[in-house]
């Protein structure tokens, strides 16, 4: 125990300085007159709801697009797999703003710009790798024998997919959904590039802190968002434990 102490010191310091203290400061600032006032504003809850809705829709589309892609990659020969995974990650080599501007340029002639669906599209394409990679990891681990056993017992390929493949890749599905849902929930800047009126909770927090200089209101909204994501990840980790897979 004595020997472990010096080893524990750096991470403890790090977490204290960069996580515990800022969160405490945030909480203190949130429980202020301005903070409570912001929480009583109907527009705040409208924005929370709007962000939640867009995050759910984007995550759902992301999952629907990523699953076939991940399934296909997992079925390729190792050489192709590496190449395809590289292509999946490739967009990260370009800055987010640059990518979004490029998307804007593509959308403009189609007349698709300035709609909420265009925002969802931009979010989906931006967060695809976060969904594809965990899905790929769990599909790739799926023993082929189990799919054969299912078909052997009379299950058609579709039934096999729903009764065997999906339940067994649930850890990947859950991980991917969390990795997409949480950042999308608090996102700002990207939606406004595509559609100025798509003002979300992240944009609102940004507005309070940066423009209105209302730290109390910004902190209160941030704290609520944090609590929500903590509950979400906690549920997910409990689910993972009960599943007993991984």
């Amino acid at each position: 125990m004595k020997k472990a102490l010096p080893l524990l010191l750096p991470p403890t310091l790090w977490l204290t300085v960069f996580l515990v203290l800022p969160t405490a400061a945030l909480a203190v600032s949130a429980f202020s007159k301005e903070g409570l006032a912001a929480l009583l504003e109907p527009v705040t809850w409208f924005l929370f709801w709007k962000s939640f809705r867009i995050a759910v829709v984007s995550t759902a589309f992301c999952l629907a697009v990523s699953y076939p892609v991940a399934y296909f990659i997992a079925g390729c020969s190792p050489r192709w797999r590496n190449l395809l995974l590289f292509l999946v990650v490739l967009p990260f080599w370009t800055n987010l703003l640059v990518r979004t501007y490029a998307l804007k340029v593509c959308m403009e002639p189609l007349g698709w710009l300035n709609t909420e669906s265009a925002v969802v599209f931009a979010l989906v394409q931006n967060f695809l790798p976060f969904m594809i990679l965990p899905l790929y990891a769990s599909i790739e681990k799926l023993p082929k024998r189990l799919l054969e056993a299912s078909q052997d017992l009379g299950a058609s390929p579709a039934v096999t997919f729903w009764k065997v493949t999906v339940p067994l890749t649930m850890p990947g599905i859950a991980a991917g959904c969390i990795l997409v849902f949480i950042p999308v929930l608090g996102i700002f800047a990207l939606p406004e590039f595509i559609h100025e009126r798509t003002h979300l909770i992240g944009s609102q927090i940004n507005l309070y802190f940066m423009k209105n200089r209302n730290a109390g209101a910004g902190s209160a909204l941030t704290l609520v968002l944090m609590l929500f994501t903590i509950v979400l990840t906690w549920t997910y980790s409990r689910f993972r434990k009960s599943e007993g897979l991984v």
């Binding site: 054969e148 056993a149 299912s150 078909q151 017992l153 299950a155 067994l168 649930m170």
Partner: peptide
């Protein structure tokens, strides 16, 4: 004729039991 339409069942060398299902649900699968 695809495997799921053939009236044969197989016992795999590696057992191939479904890890997400109980013993009873494994047996009940077919």
């Amino acid at each position: 004729v695809p495997p799921h339409k053939r009236d044969v069942n197989m016992v795999f060398q590696s057992y191939a039991l479904f890890p997400h299902l109980s013993v009873a649900e494994n047996v009940a699968f077919g």
